[in-house]
Design a protein around this nucleic acid. Structure first.
Lengths: 335, 335
DNA sequence: TTTTTTCTTGTAAGCCTTTTCGAAACATGA
DNA sequence: TCATGTTTCGAAAAGGCTTACAAGAAAAAA
């Protein structure tokens, strides 16, 4: 490979100064004669000149880059989220740096630090393990704008708010309408804000109909397929007619567990998920769920963040996103 | 936020030159007195000095970054692959830039270009749409090392080779051993090299037992859940006793389709997948599959690439990875 | 004491780009 | 002829870092 072509080479070849080249190539070259502009562009093609990324960033103080931290890339919910992020990033000529932290606090800290070192312009954090305060601390100190997902009450300036309370209510209404009165819930040990709110909405709506959800009916288990599977025993001791799994992954694991125990969904027990991942349509029985507009969430989060990056002093932005019930086959009338 | 602390500030505070600071902070400071070294380190802490990433890269001509292109982040197979990539990257202090191209050729080209602009040190491409030649062309011109996944016969120097032929054979053997003789296959329209080899192994082993697989028994459909679902009709017209879906995603879609047609898996028809994604253990019935060590693949691919980056002139590297049968519930004896 | 060696540190060039501030060159109007 | 305006372009600084090379001081050798 030959040495890299620099702006200097190009300037020399075109018989102009580096200033001229730089200006023209950056769309600020109206002041130059058409002839010069054409010549520069043509020679760029010929020589295959590509501005050096690092040199440019050094001056510009921005690499047009955002960091994105999700708990688990394997969860379709987050891969959909990422998809939204990538779409919006592309439109704005940003590049997302994506990391799955696998629910590991050490890893999260490592990535956040690494991203700061690498001078990302902003951060989207959809990860539960680090506390919001710790994040706020380190990022604010570094002057890096950020957005927290799944932390409706967090300290970040801009917010994208999903109506989790309504989501919980919808789930409750649906189960109530099918006649369920004895209901269990599967939740993780350290729920993020949105999950707490989700559960609150659920309980609240239940209570309105005179159905109490005792603490004992809330089975604690990790938010993964395995976690759902492992929660099976805990759920069964409650002998509920319906279970509300806090997300679809968990629901999928739980359904497998119930199946192994010889229970039929939904005739013996109804299962309600949350997130509306694409898999819901394929499993047997199809999983009833609450839909979150997750691709939109990714897009909006990205847009909000980039807006913030481009104008740090603008007013706080707020986006509200709706949820809706997706009734499928895993929920049915109580016997 | 206060202005960023530069190496100059730190040098001044410590009463030494920037050279001293630079050398000490980069582990090349044995020549300096212990006293000086301690002072510098301490003041770094106190002032919170972080070397400017771009300035450093400008000199070093490397951002310790690799690009990773996968067809679809939503497929657990690739999210596992990514996981391996991230693990290995972390160990080597590299950062992967990850992109899902959604099987879109335009998108792939866009990302490859963007990654070149951003001066990544190397590329891992596990994406089917761009031809291997096109990739080789553009990357070789830019002197960027790369590694192709799912392209066993590709032009890239280093290779990580999965024994897809054996994988196909294993699938065939398994179905044969259960007594199946009438078998269908679901494949995508433009299969990558590894898929072609996989099918060849499958056919070959079948042929050895005197079972022919006519072209008409190969149903063409995209490698997604939806693709598998849509292939159902095509499969059923063959009236096979077993189906080999070219990957698990496809198999999942197909199983849903078969279920809707009132067929029971495996008593009416056996379904065999490929990839051994985690979901296989959760669906009902559990999906029989061929396991590829995908996390290892991601790790090895990353390691190989980084080795290559660090020594462009070393001999070609080759890693062979095994496959194995994972018999589960979706395959059973022929009636 | 003088010379040589060993420790310890600093000077300055260079990486490649963007951008500020002018300055030639030329035409125009008085 | 001179002042003024317009068009077109360039010199040079700045950005923060690494590193080849030089050099001063102290210790050892002569």
């Amino acid at each position: 490979m030959t040495r890299k072509v620099t702006i200097r080479d190009l300037a020399e070849a075109a018989g102009v100064s580096v200033t001229t080249v730089s200006q023209i190539l950056n769309g600020k070259g109206e002041r130059f004669s058409l002839d010069t502009r054409r010549r520069v562009h043509q020679l760029q093609e010929e020589l295959g000149y590509v501005p050096d990324f690092n040199a440019r960033n050094l001056i510009m103080k921005s690499a047009q880059t955002i960091g994105v931290l999700v708990p688990n890339l394997g969860n379709p919910f987050f891969s959909m989220f990422i998809r939204g992020v990538q779409e919006a990033s592309r439109e704005q000529h940003f590049i997302p740096l994506i990391f799955g932290a696998n629910h590991d606090e050490k890893l999260e800290s490592y990535y956040v630090e690494e991203l700061i070192k690498r001078a990302v312009d902003g951060l989207i954090i959809a990860s539960a393990s680090i506390t919001a305060e710790a994040i706020d601390n380190i990022l604010k100190k570094n002057g890096i704008p950020y957005l927290l997902i799944d932390q409706n009450g967090g300290p970040s300036l801009d917010r994208i708010r999903i109506d989790d309370e309504r989501g919980g209510q919808l789930a409750a209404e649906h189960l109530l309408s099918l006649g369920h009165r004895k209901i269990a819930v599967v939740m993780p040990e350290h729920p993020t804000d949105n999950l707490v709110i989700r559960l609150a909405g659920f309980k609240e709506r239940l209570a309105e109909s005179g159905v109490m959800l005792p603490d004992s009916a809330v089975v604690i288990s990790p938010m993964t397929k395995l976690g759902g599977y492992q929660a099976t025993a805990g759920v069964m001791t409650q002998k509920p007619t319906a279970v509300f799994a806090i997300n679809d992954e968990t629901a999928l694991g739980l359904m497998r567990g119930l199946h192994e125990q010889g229970l039929n969904v939904p005739t013996d027990i109804s299962v309600m998920g949350y997130d509306d991942i694409d898999l819901d349509e394929y499993v047997v029985p199809k999983l009833s769920s609450i839909r979150q507009p997750v691709v939109t969430m990714g897009q909006q989060a990205t847009t909000l963040l980039i807006n913030r990056i481009q104008d740090q002093r603008q007013a706080a932005q707020l986006v509200d996103l709706p949820v809706e019930l997706r009734q499928r086959e895993s929920t049915g009338p109580v016997k």
